[in-house]
Design a protein around this nucleic acid. Structure first.
Length: 490
RNA sequence: CGGGGCGUAGCGCAGUCCGGCAGCGCGCCUGCUUUGGGGGCAGGAUGUCGCAGGUUCAAAUCCUGCCGCCCCGACCA
């Protein structure tokens, strides 16, 4: 047996495990500019599946894709007070182009509210021009001081949805609707049991009236913000004079929303499902759902490979994404490890004995080996992949429950956030929130919330309960009418 | 930006203290043999020792300056 090559064990150094896994599974690599990464073909294929699914959901809810420029006049970003304050420190700015200094510096977009607001101010005249329901898939740049692949990079890929509405109610509906879309995606495709809700004032998006969010728990107990949907009120409408004449003949400001999901979700998938062998990819998003590993000697090579190719064709016809690993230079054992590292949900082992018996050995990424008849695989594997999705979701939900504690005193709070989520009452004062961060490294992640009309529901009763209490840190009366999720976050 | 660490083959590192042939493991290439959980044997290729300058007969090693990366903090999707 050769020396074992795999990621650093999670228990030894979770952070190193994450970095190792990304490199070894060839999802991404570091690029020459600090904080930037190259997404390699396998990682990009995963992103493409995420895009495909979400894009379909956006279209189904009436949105259209568009594209706005990378460069934004600096003056645009300065028009909304909170927005400029929030994003200025991390802007990349172009000052020279074409060999000359520019008259006005250009910001490389950190997000596109401003330039879209500007264009809307020119496009929107009447209530008949509303709603505007736009989305764009693009890259944005935020010059972070500390970076990690997928979770925080100087440049990242995401989608940003932007909508404008005639009424507050409609815009708030939209905010909740899109949070629901993200929640559906997280649960039904990424198998991530995330907690939907609202951000506190301190944690909301710079320029929003309020921010809704999905918070997931990683395997080290830390929280990851997985998607956000913001109600922007009329903040940007006023800053960019986006007005329309309503049915009542009055000129009014529009109400806007924005919502986004970035490739950070890939980090969430890695850190929610992965294990010491490497990635564990949710079946509905996995670039390769089934890998066939043929096992042969010289004399059996031909018939085994023929059987493998035939099986691949059958499974592909059944709608599965299948790959046959016919690399001659590696042993079966090597291939098993390799595809486990890459997180492929199901493996089919096909050797001379199996071909003889018209059978194969199958194994889920997280389960045991079993034998199945070859003709049955085209029905069995799709069912097994669906079951695996459920197992992954349940396993992650169980983990989150085990690491979530309801706490009412500060000492218990500190213990809880050292290993997971703390559900605690809080006074709502930003200064108190800041003090908690300084004293425990934990921040308010989400105020759990439900929008039943949009499928935004909690998995756990404890997250659903309303209640009154006193702040876990300062003892003043609690705000929000319910417990807040606190955790150390990425 | 503050504190610490590190730059030597594609990757991980030894060699630096005490100047004297540029090394090891993995990977890679060729051939043979193997293949049901990371095979074996034989042969082979690969270096701006981070960069620049200085000391010296001689510098990866000593001196000076610069650059880059990583980790820990403060800031963040």
């Amino acid at each position: 047996m050769a020396k074992v090559k795999g990621p650093t064990p999670q228990s030894q150094d979770f952070s190193q495990w994450y970095l190792d896994t990304i490199q070894l599974a060839e999802l991404a690599d570091y690029a020459p500019v600090r904080g930037t990464i190259v997404v390699r073909p396998y990682g990009y294929a995963l992103w493409e599946h995420i895009q495909r699914v979400l894009d379909g959901m956006f279209k189904a809810t009436g949105h259209q894709n568009a594209y706005f420029p990378l460069f934004i006049p600096m003056s645009f970003l300065q028009k909304e007070a909170e927005h400029v304050e929030g994003f200025s420190p991390e802007l990349a700015v172009v000052t020279h182009a074409g060999g000359e200094e520019l008259e006005e510096p250009l910001a490389v977009r950190p997000t596109s509210e401003t330039i879209i607001g500007y264009m809307w101010s020119r496009w929107i005249r009447s209530w008949r021009d509303l709603p505007q329901l736009l989305n764009q898939w693009n890259n944005v740049v935020r010059w972070e001081l500390r970076t990690r692949p997928f979770l925080r990079t100087s440049e990242f890929l995401w989608q940003e949805g932007h909508t404008a509405h005639a009424t507050r109610e409609e815009a708030e509906e939209e905010t909740a609707r899109m949070l629901g879309v993200y929640l559906k995606f997280a649960r039904e495709y990424a198998a991530l049991p995330v907690i939907p809700g609202k951000k506190t004032e301190r944690e909301k998006f710079a320029g929003a009236v309020y921010t809704t969010t999905l918070e997931g728990m990683m395997k080290d107990g830390r929280a990851l913000q997985s998607a956000t949907s913001h109600f922007l009120g009329q903040n940007f409408a006023r800053a960019f004079e986006i007005t329309f004449q309503d049915k009542d003949l009055k000129e009014k400001h529009v109400w806007t929303t924005s919502w986004g999901l970035s490739w950070r979700i890939i980090g969430g998938i890695i850190m929610t499902h992965g294990d010491d062998r490497g990635l564990v990819l949710p079946p509905r998003l996995a670039p390769v759902q089934v890998v066939i590993v043929p096992i042969y000697k010289a004399e059996s090579k031909e018939r085994v490979l023929a059987a493998a190719k035939k099986l691949e064709a059958e499974l592909t016809a059944a709608g599965l994404r299948v790959h046959t690993d016919d690399r001659d230079q590696y042993t079966p054992g090597y291939k098993f490890h390799d595809w486990e590292l890459r997180g492929v949900p199901y493996r089919v082992e096909l050797g001379p004995r199996d071909v003889e018996a018209n059978a194969a050995v199958i194994k889920s990424r997280i389960g045991e080996k079993e034998t199945a008849a070859l003709p049955e695989l085209k029905d069995l594997l799709p069912a097994r992949l669906e079951a695996l999705h459920g197992e992954l979701f349940e396993r992650a939900l169980r983990f989150r429950r085990e690491r979530t504690r309801v706490v009412d005193d500060y000492e218990a709070f500190k213990e809880a956030v050292a290993e997971g989520f703390a559900l605690a009452y809080h006074c709502g004062d930003a200064a108190c929130e800041k003090a908690i961060q300084e004293e425990t490294k934990a921040t308010a992640r989400v105020i759990p919330l439900e929008f039943p009309a949009h499928g935004v529901l909690q998995d756990d009763e404890v997250l659903r309960e309303a209640g009154e209490g006193v702040c876990v840190r300062c003892g003043r009366p609690a705000a929000y009418g319910r417990r807040v999720v606190f955790a150390r976050a990425y």
